[in-house]
Computed example of a mutant assay.
Amino acid sequence: MRRWLGDAETALANHSDRLNAINIFPVADGDTGTNLYHTVRVAATAAAATEGTDLGEVLGAAGQAAMEEAWGNSGTLFAVFLDAFAAALAGHPRLSGPLLARALHRAQIRAWSALSEPVGGTMLSVLEAAADGAASACGAAGNDDSNVALRAALDGALEAAAGAVVATEGQLGVLASARVVDAGGVGLLLVLAALRGAVLGDGIAEEALEALHGFRIQDPYITADQPEAEGVEIMCTIQLSPLDAASLRQRLDEVGESVIMSPVGAFDDAAGLCRWRVHVHVTDPDAALELIRGVGEPERVALTELRSEDAPAGGAGDFAQENRRAR
Score class of each variant (00 low, 15 high):
2 R>S: 00
4 W>E: 04
5 L>I: 07
5 L>C: 06
6 G>I: 07
15 H>F: 02
17 D>G: 05
22 I>V: 09
23 N>S: 04
28 A>E: 00
34 T>P: 05
39 T>Q: 09
45 T>S: 14
47 A>Y: 02
50 T>N: 03
54 D>L: 09
54 D>A: 08
58 V>Q: 03
62 A>W: 00
67 M>P: 00
78 F>D: 06
79 A>L: 09
81 F>V: 05
82 L>R: 02
83 D>K: 11
87 A>C: 04
96 S>Q: 09
99 L>P: 10
101 A>P: 12
105 H>E: 15
105 H>C: 06
107 A>M: 05
108 Q>S: 13
116 S>A: 14
116 S>P: 00
117 E>V: 13
132 D>E: 14
134 A>E: 11
134 A>R: 10
135 A>T: 13
151 R>L: 10
152 A>L: 04
154 L>N: 05
155 D>H: 12
163 G>L: 02
163 G>A: 02
166 V>R: 12
168 T>C: 11
169 E>Q: 14
170 G>H: 12
172 L>H: 06
175 L>A: 08
183 A>G: 00
184 G>H: 00
184 G>K: 00
189 L>G: 04
201 G>E: 04
201 G>F: 05
202 D>C: 01
210 E>F: 02
215 F>R: 06
218 Q>M: 06
219 D>C: 03
220 P>L: 01
220 P>N: 02
221 Y>H: 12
228 E>M: 13
230 E>G: 12
231 G>M: 10
236 C>Q: 05
238 I>M: 07
238 I>C: 08
239 Q>H: 15
240 L>D: 11
244 D>I: 03
244 D>K: 08
245 A>V: 09
246 A>G: 13
250 Q>E: 14
256 G>S: 06
257 E>S: 14
257 E>F: 04
258 S>N: 12
258 S>R: 06
260 I>S: 03
261 M>I: 09
264 V>D: 08
265 G>A: 02
266 A>Y: 09
266 A>R: 13
267 F>I: 12
269 D>Y: 14
276 W>E: 01
276 W>F: 12
278 V>Q: 04
284 D>N: 15
291 L>H: 10
293 R>T: 13
305 E>C: 06
313 A>H: 14
313 A>P: 02
318 D>K: 11
320 A>Q: 10
321 Q>W: 02
321 Q>V: 11
321 Q>S: 12
326 A>T: 13
